[in-house]
Computed example of a mutant assay.
Amino acid sequence: MHREYAVDPESLRDYASLRTLFESFISSPSRLIADCPKNWHREVLHIINQLRDEGVGPNRRKGLKNHLQKLYRTNVCKNRSVDPWSRQARWLIYAEQEHEKAAFDAILSSGTPADPDHPVYPLDELFFNSPGCWHEPNQAHVKRLAPEIVAQALSMLRVSKRIILVDPYFWFTQPRWGNYRPLLVEIFKVIGDLNFNQGARKLEIHTSDRHANAEGFLRSHVLPLMPDGMLVQCKIWPKAEMHDRFILTDVGGVFLGQGLGEFELSADEEVLVGVLERETFRKELAKLQREPIESPAIES
């Protein structure tokens, strides 16, 4: 659902292209912009300051800067490690080299790629010529099975450093544990591919389960599932404060209407998975910064 795009600052040379950029990304929480090169927004800010388009006066220029600030805050993904851009070569050549190390979902540039197999699309022609993921829906009904749930969140998890599972019924007592164990198994299978193949090192579980010895259960049931070098922390909250179910990361989040657990009665049961709007994502993440009732943790 979440997709990461590299955007060529050299293609943003007039007011129309900047407007297309902002309209394409700011209103779409699932579209992320790679911070490529680092501090990519400064390249765009320089372009805005240098604009000489007729009709771009102080007020319109200020508006463009405000949009850029919002874009940087909501859509720019800063987790990718990239080499510096020397500027002796075109940005597109530089982006193609970074793509070879860790693939973007697409590269948006008006230039001609060195490799025709690279997914390069002109930003100003996306209405007619766009990557398949560009028009992906932000919601989907999927079977309530762990592989299906993780598959929906995987494009977000791959560019994330932090994984947060939020479900008031993620309990460590039977029979509920049997519904949630498969989700952890599936996440641990792909954990090394996350964070641009550097691997995620921490997973948080937020639940309202006060009926089990959480720390003891983590050691007896979760630790054997964990890959080496991993930390799992369980934060327990009052049940009255927990209602909704999410998979959150440092770059975005998805909601799961029926919860994160598998459905034990029928494999045909479906769960609605959807991308959280940016403001909703920030609010839900902020809720988790308070002090929980307890927060046991284990390391492998």
Rank of each mutant, 00 (worst) to 15 (best):
1 M>F: 05
3 R>S: 14
4 E>L: 15
5 Y>P: 02
9 P>L: 13
11 S>M: 00
12 L>A: 08
12 L>Y: 03
13 R>Y: 10
14 D>F: 01
17 S>N: 07
17 S>K: 07
18 L>N: 08
25 F>S: 06
25 F>Q: 10
27 S>I: 01
29 P>C: 00
30 S>F: 03
32 L>R: 13
33 I>M: 04
34 A>G: 08
34 A>N: 05
36 C>P: 06
38 K>P: 11
39 N>Q: 09
42 R>I: 12
48 I>N: 08
48 I>R: 04
49 N>K: 05
52 R>P: 06
53 D>W: 12
54 E>D: 14
58 P>H: 11
64 L>Y: 11
65 K>A: 09
66 N>H: 13
68 L>Y: 09
69 Q>Y: 08
72 Y>G: 10
75 N>W: 05
76 V>Q: 07
77 C>M: 09
80 R>K: 14
83 D>H: 13
87 R>A: 08
95 A>H: 13
102 A>N: 11
106 A>W: 14
107 I>Y: 04
108 L>T: 09
117 D>Y: 13
117 D>G: 15
117 D>Q: 14
122 P>W: 00
126 L>W: 06
127 F>A: 09
129 N>Q: 15
130 S>M: 00
133 C>S: 12
143 K>C: 10
144 R>H: 02
144 R>G: 01
144 R>F: 00
148 E>H: 14
150 V>C: 03
153 A>R: 01
154 L>I: 09
156 M>S: 12
164 I>G: 01
164 I>T: 08
167 D>V: 04
173 T>P: 00
173 T>R: 00
176 R>A: 02
176 R>N: 06
178 G>D: 06
180 Y>K: 15
182 P>S: 02
187 I>E: 03
191 I>H: 00
194 L>N: 05
194 L>C: 09
197 N>C: 14
201 R>Q: 12
201 R>L: 12
208 S>I: 00
208 S>W: 05
209 D>N: 05
210 R>Q: 08
212 A>T: 13
214 A>S: 12
214 A>I: 15
215 E>F: 10
220 S>V: 12
224 P>H: 01
225 L>V: 02
229 G>P: 04
229 G>K: 08
233 Q>C: 11
238 P>D: 14
240 A>L: 11
245 R>M: 04
246 F>M: 06
248 L>M: 04
248 L>V: 03
261 G>H: 07
261 G>C: 02
261 G>I: 07
262 E>Q: 10
269 E>T: 13
271 V>H: 03
274 G>N: 04
275 V>R: 07
275 V>D: 01
278 R>I: 15
286 A>S: 08
286 A>N: 10
291 E>Y: 07
299 E>A: 14
